[in-house]
Simulated assay, not measured.
Amino acid sequence: MTAVCLIDTSIFVEILNVPMKAQRHLQTLQQLEQRIHGRESLFLPMATILETGNHIGQNGDGVMRRNCAENFVQQVKAALAGRSPFKAISFLQEDEMHAWLLEFPEHAMRGSGLGDLSIIHDWQRLCSLNPARRVYIWSADNHLNAFDQAPRL
């Protein structure tokens, strides 16, 4: 069975070539192509979408920002409509937010933000739904790369 991949902000900014953030755009596109060719299930967590949007709005000159923002909107709309290699997930419910807020102070003490915590919860949910598949977070951040479930038979 193919793997399940959650795409972190550090990767999505590379895919979109976000000004002042992307450093390995072409290399990341090659890795993305390999994942698509390998028929992996690619998920865009809501935190990735929101954080990437913030990075776009805060970087580059007006023309670069506009072009990147329009590309971002196209990519996210395509994911929402099922016309993309990515599937958007994690439209947060109020009860989930309350639970995450209880966890957040301890998580913050490890130097990680609420977005990362939500991606970890997405990973846990996908692990429970896909025990026979590899489920991992594709990230440039080592602490998120550690979330990699091997398939259980």
Rank of each mutant, 00 (worst) to 15 (best):
W123Y: 11
M97Y: 12
Q30W: 05
P45F: 03
Q27D: 10
G115K: 06
M46C: 11
S128Y: 05
G111K: 03
D148M: 02
A78W: 11
L114I: 15
I7C: 02
Q149W: 01
I119Q: 02
A150V: 03
F12D: 08
I119L: 08
Q149V: 00
V18I: 08
R110Q: 13
R133T: 04
H25K: 07
H98L: 13
E33R: 15
E94N: 09
S84V: 12
K87C: 00
L102T: 10
T52M: 06
M109K: 15
D148G: 01
F86Q: 01
I49H: 08
L32N: 01
E103Y: 01
T48P: 00
D8L: 06
Q31M: 10
L144H: 03
S10P: 07
W123S: 00
V13E: 09
K21F: 04
A99K: 09
R65V: 08
A79L: 11
L42S: 08
V4P: 01
W123P: 01
L153C: 08
R39Y: 05
G60C: 06
I120H: 14
L26N: 11
L126F: 14
N67P: 04
F104P: 04
G115E: 01
V4F: 03
M20Q: 15
P105R: 05
P45L: 05
F72H: 11
Q23V: 07
A132D: 13
R134T: 09
C68H: 08
L144G: 03
L102I: 06
A81S: 15
E70V: 07
H25F: 13
L92Q: 13
V135R: 13
I119N: 01
G53M: 14
M109V: 02
F43V: 02
E96S: 10
E70R: 15
A108L: 14
A81W: 12
W123Q: 00
Q27C: 04
W100F: 10
I36V: 15
A78M: 12
T52Y: 08
G38C: 09
S139R: 00
G38F: 07
R39C: 07
L42I: 10
R39A: 07
G111V: 03
D148A: 04
K21L: 07
R24S: 09
T9M: 07
A108D: 10
N145K: 15
V73M: 12
H143L: 03
P105D: 05
E70L: 14
L92C: 03
A132C: 08
S112D: 02
W138D: 05
P131M: 03
I89L: 00
L80F: 09
S139T: 02
E51P: 03
R65P: 03
T2M: 07
Q34S: 12
G113N: 10
G111L: 07
D122I: 00
N59E: 09
L16T: 12
A140W: 05
D116I: 06
S112V: 05
M1W: 06
F104E: 09
P19K: 11
N145I: 00
M109W: 06
L92S: 08
D122P: 00
D8E: 06
D8R: 04
V135K: 12
I56D: 05
L50G: 10
S41N: 04
A108M: 12
Q30E: 12
Q31C: 06
V135E: 09
Q149R: 13
Y136N: 01
M64N: 10
L6I: 04
D148H: 10
L129E: 15
W123E: 00
L153D: 10
G82N: 14
E94H: 10
I56S: 06
